[in-house]
Amino acid sequence: MKQILRYGLILFLVCSISAGVLAFTYENTQKVIESNRKKEKERILKEIIPEATDFKNVENPPKSDSNLVKITEVYIAYKGNEKTGAVWEVTSKGYSSDILMIIGTNKEGKISQITILSQQETPGLGTEIVKDSFLNQFIGRDTPNLEVKKNVTPVSGATISSSAIVRAINEVLKHKNF
Rank of each mutant, 00 (worst) to 15 (best):
T127P: 01
M1N: 12
I71L: 11
S16N: 12
E40T: 11
Q3M: 05
N28R: 15
S35I: 00
V152D: 13
E73N: 12
L173K: 00
E121L: 08
K39Q: 11
Q120P: 01
E147N: 10
K110Q: 14
N106F: 09
R167E: 13
V21C: 10
A23T: 12
L68R: 11
E27H: 15
Y75H: 13
A164I: 04
A52Y: 10
K39D: 14
Y95M: 00
S162R: 04
I4Q: 02
E89R: 03
Q120L: 04
I71T: 04
L173W: 06
D142A: 10
T105M: 08
N136Y: 05
F134Q: 08
S112P: 02
R43T: 06
R43I: 02
S112R: 04
G140D: 12
I169M: 03
E128N: 10
I76G: 00
G124T: 12
F138Y: 08
T53G: 15
T115Y: 11
A168S: 11
E171H: 00
N67D: 15
V32C: 01
S92N: 05
Y78V: 05
E73M: 02
S161R: 07
S66W: 06
Y7S: 06
E82D: 13
N36W: 08
V14M: 14
Q119R: 04
E121M: 06
Q119C: 13
P61A: 10
N106R: 02
P50M: 09
L22K: 04
H175G: 03
A52R: 01
T53D: 14
F138P: 07
V87Q: 11
G104N: 07
I102E: 07
Y95T: 00
R141L: 10
D65C: 00
A86Q: 15
A77T: 05
L117Q: 14
K38G: 00
Q137K: 12
F178Q: 09
A23W: 12
K131A: 12
P62W: 07
P123A: 09
S161C: 03
K110F: 09
R167L: 15
I129A: 03
K38W: 01
A164W: 02
A52H: 04
L9N: 00
T122L: 04
F134A: 05
I71E: 09
Q113K: 15
